[in-house]
């Protein structure tokens, strides 16, 4: 186990981050990443590794920058006019903010699931087939059918919808919609899946299903999940990063973070003293 990037909140300014480049199994490495929305400094000098084949969760109070950081990882922030990102984010050693990197190709590798389920106003089938179609992943109808079925199966939704693949995706229940969105992301066969509070709009039963699903998906995908439920982070993730006011306070194995936080802010948060 490598040394965690423990960063003291008030001593970050000049410190060179340690142990960030040496890691070999890091899927994504962020080095001193900063994000500004107009004048607002939303993310301050975040340096963090995300390891392949694990679930990493970002926790922290609202507005702490965890979602902002997540959106940096597939350059979703590009769609916001006033947003500027500086620093480096590397995926498999390549800087994803390099001008040579194509954002379409990047997003095909890094899928994303949003806070509120957002199925397209199309049929269930077309929702799943959307990604493979635009990227040309299926050579023919049979292949496309297979991708759709496997994706739905992996998302645990196949049994519920296999008789109504042509029904509109918006007609499903909230939990089913979110699993549809996960299936939609999986259908592209990404390497990383980002999830931005995927259960915050769902009831406990649907949440449990999604959590189960995340655990299963871990085998094939690198998963990053933003959540403000600490229990969820504890249940699904292997590593946890705690953000506060735009800064990364502490990152480490989930167990360690929850049982033995090094920073008193983290401790305060997980014991419920603020947040």
């Amino acid at each position: 186990m490598e040394k965690a990037n423990v960063r003291e909140a008030r001593e970050t300014t000049s410190e060179t981050p340690e142990g960030t480049t040496a890691v070999t199994d890091a899927k994504i490495q962020a080095v001193r990443t900063n994000v500004h929305y107009g004048d607002k400094h939303a993310l301050k000098d975040v340096t963090l590794d995300i390891r392949a084949g694990e679930v990493t969760s970002f926790i922290g109070p609202s507005g702490c920058g965890k979602s902002t950081f997540l959106r940096c990882l597939n350059r979703m922030n590009d769609t916001i006019d006033s947003c500027r990102v500086s620093g480096t984010v590397r995926m498999d050693g390549e800087d994803i903010y390099d001008p040579k990197i194509d954002v379409v190709q990047l997003r095909a590798r890094v899928g994303m699931v949003f806070q509120k389920p957002n199925p397209f106003p199309k049929s269930i089938y077309d929702n799943i087939a959307y990604g493979p179609r635009i990227h040309g992943l299926a050579a023919n109808k049979d292949e496309l059918d297979e991708i759709v079925v496997t994706s739905l199966e992996k998302a645990g939704l196949l049994a519920e919808v296999k008789d109504r693949m042509e029904a509109p995706g918006t007609g499903l229940s909230g939990g089913q919609q979110q699993r549809l969105c996960i299936a939609r992301a999986i259908a592209v066969s990404p390497e990383v899946i980002l999830m931005d509070e995927p259960c915050s709009a769902l009831d406990p039963i649907a949440t449990a299903k999604i959590e189960e699903l995340i655990d299963e998906l871990r085998e094939n995908y690198t998963i990053v999940i933003v959540t403000h439920s600490m229990q969820q982070a504890a249940r699904v993730s292997q590593r946890t990063a705690f953000f506060h006011l735009g800064e990364l306070i502490e990152v480490g194995d989930t167990e360690q973070i929850f049982t033995n936080p090094r920073h008193k802010l983290t401790q305060g948060y997980i014991t419920g003293r603020f947040g």
Binding site: N74, M76, T79, V104, Q105, L106, R107, A108, G111, M112, V113, F114, N118, P119, F120, Y130, G131, I134, H135, C181, R184, A185, V188, L194
Partner: peptide
Amino acid sequence: DGAYALGA
């Protein structure tokens, strides 16, 4: 966002 995130 949904479409962009899929790489559209």
